[in-house]
């Protein structure tokens, strides 16, 4: 289980995540692949740079895995996030979830990416044609309305 959650600075091998969650009890595996998008809100991204507080980030990925297994029993989860410089279309994150039936695998996979964006200490720096900046959140707006991230478990809405 420990090896199922990782932060690396080399290209992610998607098949290796599939292998980690493959088991005889599973009837479904969902894969989410997050890639670097060229255009966001009319701005053209040239490259991205991801930074992580690695030991804490791995710990938080593990916690997300535990949350998923308590919400959707009999699931298996693997998540790898890449850091460093990435180009357009490069894979930044891969999430693999297996479960006995497909519904749980789909739901748990979406839950995982939502939680990554809330609690895992990883930051993205956008390099545009006309400058660069660290992104505070995915909306480029005030990040935490409550003053802190939702570190508590949230319902799967």
């Amino acid at each position: 289980m420990t090896d199922n959650f990782d932060i690396i600075d080399t290209p992610i091998d998607t098949q290796s995540l599939i292998d980690k969650v493959t088991k005889r009890e599973a009837g479904a595996i969902t894969i989410f692949i997050g890639t670097v998008r060229e255009w966001t809100e009319g701005k053209k991204t040239l490259t991205l740079e991801y930074q992580a507080y690695k030991p804490m980030a791995i710990q938080k990925l593990k916690e997300i895995g535990e949350e998923i297994q308590s919400k959707w029993p009999k699931t298996e989860v693997a998540i790898t996030h890449r850091i460093g410089h990435l180009g357009i279309t490069d894979i930044a994150v891969v999430i693999a979830v297996s479960s006995p039936h497909r519904k749980a695998a789909y739901e748990a996979n979406e839950y995982a990416i939502k939680r990554i964006k809330q609690i895992v200490p990883i930051w993205k720096k956008e390099h545009w044609e006309d400058g660069e900046t660290w992104i505070g959140d995915q909306l480029e707006t005030t990040p935490y309305p409550s003053g802190k991230p939702n570190v508590k478990d949230e319902s799967n809405d």
């Binding site: 991801y50 990554i116 964006k117 200490p121 930051w123 991230p149």
Partner: peptide
Amino acid sequence: VAFIPPVSGG
């Protein structure tokens, strides 16, 4: 002690 700006992974 780590100072953690709003996160933007994924």
